[in-house]
């Protein structure tokens, strides 16, 4: 293994460790029974098949949002629009589920396609604004999130709300739209297969096609891309469309895989989680799986902890923020890197 790879792993590891230590410190400080709290947080998710099932179930949408965000980050686009896309595509999928009844496999496919299509359009717009007028993709995507949430909540409340249940939930979806459960004793659904397949396809796209090559090279060094004759606008648009399709797919898969009605009363947060996953994974599709599993694990741990103890699950967000801060710190542990690089250069000569 070469120096940079080793360094990146060490850095990620140190950042995660620091954040976990801070998490432990918070628990020690805030909890009345720190030891059992720690147990629930760290150990308990792996003690039952059902909990491990929860981890995988949660990892499915996280893989989609992590993939979408890593494509965007990789192109140098700080677009957090996956969040709004997740929400609205989920709603669209549930509408397909409510309004249609198709023979088994076509129904979920239609729902996912519609979700993807929506994501593509939204991200294409944001990408277009960026490429054409250099409009801040960060602020616009965040505004879009709120806008789509508002529109979605309106559609839900006025057209698809089931008056017979308490809470703002949609009508029940037709069963034909649901994704099948694939592992008994858990709620893991075929979405997992779709997610893994998407990871593989994105990997192929980014690393085995000329368009993916253009995306990666432009992201690494825009001037190099320019000098080799790449069209930056085209690259931004392609990356945006792809990310939108994946985010939209994620929202649809989550709704038809895990729910019987549309139940999100706020933005689900799954899209935002993509930012952390992309950073942990260093934008590499393969790593997205592990990063998503890691995040899902500590999320489930935090949920169990919150249920069993006095510490709320939101602690995880604190840890997430700390990981991002350290991983993106270019100078963080740089001394270590320079030393090893120097050694490497010397060994080479």
């Amino acid at each position: 293994m070469n120096v940079e790879k080793r360094f990146e792993i060490v850095r990620t590891f140190v950042a995660v460790t620091i954040s976990l230590l801070i998490g432990f410190a918070i628990i020690l400080f805030a909890s009345d029974e720190p030891l059992s709290t720690l147990y629930y947080f760290i150990i308990s998710p792996s003690t039952k098949m059902r909990y491990l099932g929860n981890v995988v179930e949660l990892a499915i949408p996280l893989i989609f949002s992590g993939l979408a965000t890593s494509i965007l980050f990789q192109t140098g686009l700080f677009n957090l629009g996956s969040e709004g896309v997740f929400y609205f595509s989920g709603l669209l999928a549930s509408i397909i589920g409510i309004k249609f009844s198709l023979s088994f496999i076509f129904h979920p496919i239609l729902a996912i396609l519609i979700g993807s299509l929506f994501g593509m359009i939204v991200m294409l717009l944001i990408g277009f604004f960026k490429a054409k007028w250099n409009a801040s993709e960060l602020v616009i995507s965040l505004m879009f999130n709120s806008i789509f949430f508002g529109i979605g909540a309106y559609i839900l409340n006025f057209y698809f709300r089931d008056p017979n249940v308490s809470g703002v939930y949609s009508f029940k979806m037709n069963e034909s739209v649901f994704l099948n459960k694939i592992i008994p004793g858990t709620r893991i659904h075929t979405g997992l297969i779709i997610a893994l397949l998407t990871v593989f396809l994105v990997y192929l796209f980014l690393y085995r096609t000329r368009w993916g090559y253009e995306i990666r090279m432009t992201g690494l060094n825009k001037r190099f891309g320019k000098y080799t004759g790449m069209n930056t606008t085209k690259v931004i648009l392609i990356a945006s469309i792809l990310a939108g399709a994946i985010a939209g797919m994620g929202g649809a898969v989550e709704i038809i895989g895990m729910y019987d009605r549309f139940k999100w009363s706020a933005l689900p947060g799954l899209g935002f989680d993509g930012a952390l996953i992309a950073m942990l994974a260093k934008n590499k599709p393969k790593n997205v799986i592990f990063a998503a599993l890691f995040l899902a694990y500590i999320r489930i741990g935090a949920d169990l902890m919150a249920r069993m103890t006095d510490i709320p699950s939101e602690m995880v967000y604190i840890l997430q923020a700390i990981i991002i801060l350290f991983i993106s710190g270019k100078k963080f542990l740089e001394g270590y890197k320079e030393k090893s690089l120097l050694k490497e250069v010397k060994n080479n000569e």
Partner: peptide, 11 residues
């Protein structure tokens, strides 16, 4: 630490 300003803000 030269954290990217945008990522730092997001964090």
């Amino acid at each position: 630490l030269k954290t990217d300003v945008i990522l730092g803000g997001i964090a």
